[in-house]
């Protein structure tokens, strides 16, 4: 089987979008325009990205362009997290630091230990998986730490009043927020392959790779995602906590942050 479906194949697959639009119209969901717009936008974005990647992945192109692409991904992801976590102090810098740390750790292990060969064709997708899969958990942990400390202010101040340093006083609430952000990823990892075949493996199988070869790549990707999510959530969780206390161990005034 070939994974090259051609332009005609891609165009024919739009029939499935039409199916969704017809269902929306039939059930009066008023989502027809949204469905059409999202499909059109996704296609335009993918075509634009594909055109740029075509240049970057061309043999002979400097690896520096791929690294520049990775830096761009980190910036965009940090901007998305900052937008969705408006009102959380210092979130832009924290999100940048978190994604930079996750990319450094994950790619450092994968390329540094020779699991994948460092080239544009591996660097960009692996960095994309690292960053893309960490975003939801990072947004979640930033909001949860803020909400936990705001909603349980009485408890936190009671701990501070007993002479606990701010790190200790915040620890139960930070732990709760980190668990909330990490548990879905752990559950997803446990269920992998049982419910649905994960993305990387599906792509490889469609491209004609042997199943066991695809499994090895998928396992590495899965561990990469788990490590990346843990890294970003811990960096953001610790960073937000630190910013919500003054140096003399007082909890700052906390308002309700804007919804993303």
């Amino acid at each position: 089987m070939s994974a090259d479906i051609g332009w005609a194949g891609m165009a024919i697959s739009l029939v499935l979008v039409v199916v969704a639009i017809v269902l929306s119209w039939w059930r009066r969901l008023s989502l027809e325009r949204s469905l059409a717009w999202s499909a059109t936008r996704a296609l335009a974005q993918l075509l634009a990205v594909g055109a740029v990647l075509d240049l970057i992945l061309e043999p002979g192109t400097s690896l520096g362009w791929a690294w520049l692409w990775v830096v761009g991904m980190v910036g965009v992801a940090a901007a998305v997290v900052a937008w969705r976590s408006r009102g959380v102090p210092g979130i832009v810098g924290l999100a940048l630091a978190a994604f930079a740390a996750a990319v450094s750790v994950s790619l450092g292990v994968l390329f540094g230990l020779g699991i994948f060969e460092l080239e544009s064709r591996t660097l960009i997708p692996l960095a994309g998986l690292t960053i893309g899969n960490s975003m939801a958990a990072t947004i979640l942990v930033a909001g949860r730490v803020y909400e936990e400390l705001r909603d349980k202010r009485d408890e936190v101040e009671a701990r501070l009043a007993l002479g606990q340093p701010s790190n200790d006083a915040a620890r139960p609430y930070l732990r709760a927020a980190l668990r909330t952000a990490l548990v879905p990823q752990i559950e997803q990892t446990k269920a992998v392959g049982l419910v649905a075949l994960p993305g990387a493996m599906t792509g490889l199988l469609l491209a004609g790779v042997e199943p066991l070869d695809a499994v090895r790549v998928q396992a590495a990707v899965m561990f990469l995602v788990l490590g990346a999510v843990a890294t970003t959530t811990v960096v953001v969780g610790l960073g937000v906590t630190k910013r919500l206390f003054t140096p003399d161990h007082r909890l700052v005034a906390l308002d309700r942050p804007a919804e993303g």
Partner: peptide, 20 residues
């Protein structure tokens, strides 16, 4: 030092705040 001060000056709040 705020941490030492808070142990010297104990406080009970308006609402009971038992910890888990």
């Amino acid at each position: 030092d705020p941490l030492r001060l808070r142990r010297r000056v104990g406080m009970v709040f308006q609402r009971p705040t038992p910890f888990p």
